[in-house]
Design a protein around this nucleic acid. Structure first.
Lengths: 191, 191
DNA sequence: CCTACCGATCGGTAGG
DNA sequence: CCTACCGATCGGTAGG
């Protein structure tokens, strides 16, 4: 039924935004229901219990897939351009939507990371435009395995943003700008 | 009083380990009390409420300070040695004590990061043995501001470990080893 | 430092 | 899909 589907989707969207904002235990079934326009008891027509909702949300919204999706829209004539664009874009995206990583933190702290393996197995992307582009520009890059490169790239962005959280955004000037970090990154990656 | 002090400390230690393991809302005052060997009501002789406990714990155990503390014990004859040792040591430490970062995730998700600025202001280290050593070896390093370097170093370790969490530890072979990441990092930092 | 207790809220169920 | 309700647990207080 169409109605069933759309209610289920609304529950998932509601749960996602609440989990990300308040954590798992901080988001009650009543909150999730209200935000989806129904009553708490009705949720149980679509899900067995609260944890099942989280499971589905986490698998669908695993930040890794979202990040690979963002990377797929990046273009660049040279490896340097491609990588610089990727860093800038990811940086911007993760800043404007810190929620992206929050879901993962909730999984780590409140769920002990137990859903991670299944999330990876369920929907790891089979082909990535970004990775394809990197392969085409392989000659400009040091002899590093591509997965290691991807890892380093994504990792650097995380690092950048997480460090800002650590020290608070207030004193960020003294700790360097995005461009400086990008420079160090490219030096390590390019020939 | 000595007794007051030690009870307070036990409450803080108990709260720390519980917050890290179960999150803020997942750790009840009764749990915290029991783990400290007292009853829940007695906590209020030492703290005004639950959030005040978290505040004190977070300021005392902010991962950034613990990391700088670990770095202070690192030695190395050359910049390369110093940095490699630092990467390996931090990596080992963060792996054996993932709790270190969990406290910060709890703060970000359940507290909205509101205690971060005060934690930084309250106890930022005035002198660091590690930073001093880096300065002495400045000639071997590219012309990067030292804070940027520290940031990149700590960030790389984070990145390494967080990426493992993201993909789950299962498929880690294909994504590269610690040594490979260290190599990319050093290329970017050393002259 | 404790026992006893408060109102509020939780996840989930019964029954229609 | 709802109303009504369950037992359990929460943070916090009173009073000694």
């Amino acid at each position: 039924m169409n109605n069933e589907d759309s209610t289920k989707k609304q529950i998932l969207e509601s749960a996602y935004s609440l989990f990300v904002e308040k954590g798992y235990r901080g988001s009650s079934m009543r909150d999730i229901a209200e935000h989806a326009g129904i009553k708490a008891a009705s949720i149980y027509n679509h899900f067995e219990n609260k944890e099942q909702i989280f499971e589905v949300v986490f698998i669908e919204k695993h930040p890794m897939f979202r990040i690979l999706e963002i990377l797929d829209s990046i273009r660049g004539a040279t490896a340097e351009e491609l990588l610089t664009n990727a860093v800038n874009r990811l940086n911007k995206e993760l800043r404007s939507e810190p929620a992206l990583l929050n879901l993962f933190f909730v999984e780590l702290v409140e769920m002990d990371g137990k859903h991670v393996p299944r999330a990876i197995k369920t929907n790891f992307p089979t082909d990535s435009n970004f990775i394809k582009q990197i392969y085409e520009k392989k000659s400009e890059i040091r002899d590093i395995a591509i997965p290691v490169l991807i890892r380093f790239l994504i990792g650097t962005i995380f690092a950048h943003i997480m460090f800002n959280w650590f020290i608070g955004d207030s004193s960020s000037r003294r700790w360097g700008t995005s461009a400086e970090l990008n420079d160090v990154l490219l030096r390590g990656i390019l020939r």
